[in-house]
Simulated scan of single mutants.
Amino acid sequence: MHTPKQNLSALVITYNEIGYIEKCIDSILFADEIIVVDSYSTDGTYEYLENLPNVKVIQHPFTNFTTQKSFALEQASNEWVLFVDADEVVTKKLEEEITETINTPDACEAYWFYRTFMFQNERLKFSGWQTDKNHRLFRKSKVKYTDTKLVHETLDVDGTSCILKEKLTHYCYKDYEDYKAKMLHYGRLKAKEAFYKEKNFNYLLYFVKPIWKFIHQYIIRLGFLDGKKGIIICYLNSLSVFERYRELKRLEKKNQLAYYLVMP
């Protein structure tokens, strides 16, 4: 008996992604449906997407990555979903593997993707990213994003997860200021996550954790082999950890002040 072809929904969330989103969209045109959820970009991203005939773009306010991706997932009309970041590109070989995979009768419920990291237009081979992988392809009815994380969101899968052979290409680094802003933003979201979990600020961790992050990625995870690129990436990643603890300290002080103001 002939099995009908499986349709695929490709999802992306965006905010000020001109310079990246063009390549991303071009690489997922093989999908039967492309939906982009934009959090009110100011650089022309929304207008660019609105003019693409095969893309449905929806503006939705950004609270955190988990809620934004959960909202995007609700918009998908197909069972199979491919979720890519705006700075990621699906290669032709990965496209073929995705298409073949979702049309396999015994396919898993979700698939991990490894990624090739690009520093501008040069490959970043080490600096802690060698084993990075994310769920990117899955059955909509079998997954949900956990509400315990605000950044680096985690997918709960009701079933089996497998790994695809081909890698996503991730253009992680545009320029210094862009990556720095991204890392500081991640740090502040991680601080909110820790605050909601009632984790307390600790001065020792405030100083030790960022240093350890740099040492771990630059030395243990071989960032020094990436040359100048490795120094920049490892430093900015450690800056994100520093910002997490700085922001956690600020949130605790703000909470204490609010407590004393309402005390009789």
Results as ranks from 00 to 15, higher is better:
residue 1 M to D: 05
residue 5 K to H: 04
residue 6 Q to K: 15
residue 8 L to F: 12
residue 9 S to N: 05
residue 10 A to T: 08
residue 10 A to V: 03
residue 12 V to T: 06
residue 13 I to V: 11
residue 16 N to P: 04
residue 23 K to F: 00
residue 25 I to W: 09
residue 25 I to M: 12
residue 25 I to V: 14
residue 27 S to W: 03
residue 27 S to N: 14
residue 29 L to F: 03
residue 29 L to V: 13
residue 32 D to P: 15
residue 32 D to N: 15
residue 33 E to M: 11
residue 34 I to M: 09
residue 35 I to D: 07
residue 35 I to C: 12
residue 37 V to F: 09
residue 39 S to L: 05
residue 39 S to C: 14
residue 42 T to R: 08
residue 42 T to K: 13
residue 44 G to E: 10
residue 44 G to W: 11
residue 46 Y to P: 01
residue 46 Y to W: 05
residue 47 E to T: 11
residue 47 E to R: 07
residue 48 Y to E: 08
residue 51 N to R: 03
residue 53 P to V: 07
residue 56 K to D: 13
residue 57 V to K: 04
residue 62 F to H: 10
residue 63 T to V: 12
residue 63 T to G: 05
residue 65 F to K: 14
residue 66 T to F: 00
residue 69 K to F: 07
residue 69 K to Q: 14
residue 70 S to P: 09
residue 76 A to D: 11
residue 77 S to K: 10
residue 78 N to F: 08
residue 82 L to P: 03
residue 83 F to M: 13
residue 84 V to T: 14
residue 86 A to F: 09
residue 90 V to N: 13
residue 91 T to G: 08
residue 93 K to Q: 15
residue 93 K to I: 10
residue 93 K to P: 05
residue 94 L to K: 02
residue 94 L to Y: 02
residue 97 E to W: 01
residue 101 T to D: 02
residue 103 N to F: 07
residue 103 N to M: 10
residue 104 T to A: 09
residue 107 A to F: 00
residue 108 C to T: 05
residue 110 A to W: 01
residue 110 A to T: 04
residue 111 Y to H: 06
residue 115 R to F: 00
residue 116 T to R: 14
residue 120 Q to I: 11
residue 121 N to P: 00
residue 122 E to F: 03
residue 122 E to S: 00
residue 124 L to H: 14
residue 124 L to W: 07
residue 125 K to A: 04
residue 126 F to V: 10
residue 130 Q to M: 06
residue 130 Q to K: 12
residue 132 D to M: 06
residue 133 K to Q: 10
residue 133 K to G: 03
residue 136 R to I: 05
residue 138 F to H: 07
residue 139 R to Y: 06
residue 143 V to R: 11
residue 144 K to C: 02
residue 145 Y to G: 01
residue 146 T to P: 02
residue 148 T to F: 06
residue 151 V to Q: 04
residue 153 E to R: 08
residue 153 E to P: 06
residue 153 E to V: 12
residue 155 L to A: 13
residue 161 S to C: 13
residue 162 C to S: 10
residue 165 K to V: 01
residue 170 H to L: 07
residue 173 Y to C: 02
residue 174 K to D: 05
residue 175 D to K: 13
residue 178 D to F: 02
residue 182 K to F: 01
residue 182 K to M: 02
residue 184 L to K: 14
residue 184 L to C: 10
residue 186 Y to K: 07
residue 187 G to N: 05
residue 188 R to V: 00
residue 189 L to C: 08
residue 191 A to T: 15
residue 193 E to V: 09
residue 194 A to K: 09
residue 197 K to Y: 11
residue 199 K to E: 13
residue 203 Y to T: 13
residue 206 Y to V: 01
residue 209 K to C: 07
residue 210 P to W: 00
residue 211 I to S: 02
residue 213 K to P: 03
residue 213 K to V: 00
residue 214 F to C: 01
residue 217 Q to G: 08
residue 218 Y to A: 12
residue 220 I to M: 13
residue 223 G to V: 09
residue 223 G to D: 03
residue 227 G to V: 04
residue 230 G to Y: 12
residue 233 I to K: 13
residue 235 Y to R: 13
residue 237 N to K: 15
residue 239 L to K: 04
residue 240 S to M: 15
residue 242 F to D: 01
residue 245 Y to I: 15
residue 246 R to D: 06
residue 253 K to R: 08
residue 255 N to D: 02
residue 259 Y to R: 08
residue 260 Y to M: 06
residue 261 L to H: 10
residue 261 L to A: 02
residue 262 V to G: 08
residue 262 V to D: 05
residue 264 P to R: 11
